[in-house]
Design a protein around this nucleic acid. Sequence first.
DNA 1: ACGCTATACGTAGTCACGCTACATATGCAT
DNA 2: ATGCATATGTAGCGTGACTACGTATAGCGT
Lengths: 107, 107
Amino acid sequence: MDANDVRGHLDGLLLAVLESGPLHGYGIIEALQRRSGGALQLPTGTVYPALRRLERARWIEGTWSVVDGRKRRTYSLSPAGRKELARRRSEWVRFTGVIGTVLGGGA
Amino acid sequence: MDANDVRGHLDGLLLAVLESGPLHGYGIIEALQRRSGGALQLPTGTVYPALRRLERARWIEGTWSVVDGRKRRTYSLSPAGRKELARRRSEWVRFTGVIGTVLGGGA
DNA sequence: ACGCTATACGTAGTCACGCTACATATGCAT
DNA sequence: ATGCATATGTAGCGTGACTACGTATAGCGT
């Protein structure tokens, strides 16, 4: 699967990962990779800007900390982010329903 | 559902519609709308260029005709297009599997 | 001491691809 | 004659993820 196919679904993926608990950018990238069985290997240039965008939208909150001498920005899901995640999930169901139906082929 | 979300899946949708039989651009737009229960209302500026692209890729073949005094370009699925459609369908299954798993929420 | 890798964050510019807005033309109903 | 449905097409735009960098610390091997 081409990593470009996450277009339009990236925000939902990031929110979903953070639902399990606060995590920092680098850890989020690894979590996506792990959860997708290796399919999603998103570059930092994709994830970091997206996280800042989600933060500006108040869906996640970030706090700086230092772990092992390295600066980290740890993000956690906000109540608004939780609502947004739910919205993204129902949108995903609708989306796959529509495309799947038209695409057919036993789908 | 935002029509922009078809990004990356448009070709498959068009090929799928043509699987039922030859059809012209305008008819394809209507078929997409009908099959999707009204969700997919793709503008001509999206569909026509896409059809030309699919034709250049040899996945569909177009022939001009005149019906009721109006010029029509009727497209039909080529053998290569049928193969491509199958490929798109398996990609779709993989895609929804990956995103759905990561997105979670009972998906 | 030096280089390499993993960890960790970030920006600038590019590119793909669907959309908006527009242009063109015929048939039919009011 | 005016407007709407039918029918095809192009030019330019915008969105959003990507590529390619740049920065910095820790830990390991040599």
